[in-house]
């Protein structure tokens, strides 16, 4: 009985280590890393902590880990990643932490501390991102051949777009519907700005704003997943990106069609 208690305590510790490792993997997956990087990091970290075998399977939103410890204890845990975003600073930090752990495994408490530290990655302030949106749309409008007046209108529209996106995600609207609504709002704002404001070429201004909505990172990641042999995740990500692009097109199409522009 005594022997069993000791092994239970030990098992508990091992499970906690696995939970931390999965936290790092989930941080990678949730912020835009490829499936291969997640699987590779998780299995390397398991080996660093003395597991002699680690089977990891990752699909778009879940990580399954089953690991055998040196004393033939077999443990397994899953992790579901609820929301996926793009925060490449977090990906870089989680990646760096995983490299550090593989070089020299940290004790459990320090490991927990380091995992908690991942959430403190610096982010740009809301105000900066707001202005950034305007700047990028203005730049893209010029890139696609718009005039300076157009770029001013695009900047203003992007500020509206930013607010709409923020409101939508606060209301927890489904992301595909959110894309449709946002591109619709952007198109409407552009038409208004062209009639009563500085806008001259509505098409160039709308394109400048569409560029902000197109899921560029998701497309790149899904292509890389497919090349790495993670065809399933790759295809799922690819489909999601295509559906989002269609949603964006439909949103502005509805407005343009409705107003007969």
């Amino acid at each position: 009985m005594d022997d069993l208690l000791i092994s239970l305590d030990r098992q508990n510790k091992l499970m906690q280590v696995m939970a931390c490792i999965l936290d790092i993997g989930a941080t990678l997956l949730a912020n835009g890393a490829e499936v291969m990087r997640v699987e590779d990091s998780v299995s390397r970290m398991c080996h660093a902590y003395g597991f002699k075998r680690a089977d990891v399977f990752t699909v778009t939103s879940s990580i399954f880990l089953s690991a055998t410890y040196a004393d033939d204890n077999i443990l397994s845990q899953n992790r579901r990643v609820a929301a996926r975003g793009t925060d490449l600073e977090k990906v870089a930090r989680a990646n760096e932490l995983s490299r550090r752990i593989c070089a020299c495994p940290l004790p459990l408490e320090e490991l927990k501390e380091a995992v908690r530290g991942l959430d403190d990655a610096p982010v740009y302030s809301e105000r900066f991102r707001f202005l950034l949106y305007g700047g990028i749309a203005a730049v893209f409008t010029v890139f696609f051949g718009g005039t300076l007046a157009d770029s001013l209108a695009a900047g203003l529209t992007a500020l509206v777009l930013f607010v709409a996106q923020k409101l939508g995600s606060r209301l927890r609207i489904n992301s595909i519907l959110l894309n449709t609504v946002c591109s619709g709002i952007a198109a409407l704002t552009v038409l208004l700005l062209c009639r009563f404001g500085p806008g001259q070429n509505p098409d160039k201004i709308i394109i400048g704003n569409i560029m902000l909505l197109i899921p560029g990172l998701a497309l790149t990641t899904s292509l890389r997943d497919m090349i790495n042999g993670d065809t399933l995740s790759g295809l799922m990500g690819f489909c999601e990106a295509i559906i989002k692009a269609l949603a964006i097109a439909i949103g502005s199409a509805l407005v343009l069609y409705g107003l007969g522009a």
Binding site: G32, T86, D87, L88, E89, K90, A121, V123, Y124, F128, R129, L132, Y133, G135, I136, V139, G216, L217
Partner: peptide, 8 residues
């Protein structure tokens, strides 16, 4: 600009 949006 997009690098900044992606939090680089």
């Amino acid at each position: 600009g997009f690098a900044l949006i992606f939090n680089v």
